[in-house]
Design a protein around this nucleic acid. Sequence first.
RNA 1: GGGAAGUUGCCCGAGUGGCUAAAGGGGACAGACUGUAAAUCUGCUAGCGUACGCUUACCAUGGUUCGAAUCCAUGACUUCCCA
Length: 309
Amino acid sequence: MKPKVIIIAGPTASGKTQLSVELAKKINGEIISADSMQIYRHLNSGTAKITEEEKQGIQHYLIDICDVSDEFSVADFQKLAYQKIEEILQKNKVPIIVGGTGLYISSLVKNMKFVPQTDQDYLIKENLNKRIEELGDTAKDVLYDELLSIDKEAAEKIDKNNFKRVVRALAMYYSTGLTKTEQEKKTKPNDGKYRYITFVIDCARDVLYNRINLRVDAMIKQNILDEAKWLLNQNIDPKSTAMQAMGYKEFFPYLKGEESLEKCVEKLKQETRKYAKRQITWFKRVENAIYINGENNIEEKISDILNNI
RNA sequence: GGGAAGUUGCCCGAGUGGCUAAAGGGGACAGACUGUAAAUCUGCUAGCGUACGCUUACCAUGGUUCGAAUCCAUGACUUCCCA
């Protein structure tokens, strides 16, 4: 029998952190974070990162593993997560994956196969960027047609306006000689080494939105503004992942004196709600998910989980 | 008290007689998602009907007109300027 790995997923502010710690205490587990922003050091309040105190001695992995200027991808996450799962199992403990980054979780559950990066990839990316610049306004059409000719199946699934994905699909082909479609065919569902049991925290929309608002208000009282200021002063590429983190980018206009604090706070609440909505959409699709009522108290949630593992 | 401008769908906002159930943006809702994913992108948003369609809509009332969000009159409210 494959070893079991527990997943706790759910939208932001649904109570994943507390639930996972309580569960870990109960079942002798250790936690692997599946969160694309909590990997960054120094981004604490804004990412609602768990504090040492909240950890209650439970071991947490894949938090604070990157500098804000570092590049990090699903493939990196997957590799590290597999390592950590192994380590935890070695200790005879239960791995618990906790997070809101749907793609990261899927990379594990679906056991996606990522082709290893090569030195060439950097050049290919650069080359594509150069072409995009040269093509100007026509880039969108030209590159989409190009993808259509090399990987029709992928092209038809990607919206033409989703330029990022079109470019990535092309890069996949140029760096490996295999199209995106071909590469994806390599991943076969259920051929992973583990048996994943996925719990999704489900919460009435208005309750969740209310929690988000409260959480943002609480963040303001912490040092989120200092963190945002710090991040802004790092002078890293505005397009880099860390710079897109919610709870930071919304305050940049305020810090630059372009917008009032109230407006920025409102914006952050709204963006967070939209994000939660996208997460909910993502988690609706996960197969065999077991729903946990987010409005139950912690004991009820824990017993729901224990009954299913 | 006098003068000027304005009032458009959930919000902002374009629209000066038919092609307008009303551009565009935002929000809301729904969806997609294999290397930036807290990113990126799509659909949809008056009501009823499967649909040709019908009904109700651009502050209110009345009028002009074959036809009005668009023109006229009166009223209400808002903003600004002069007293």
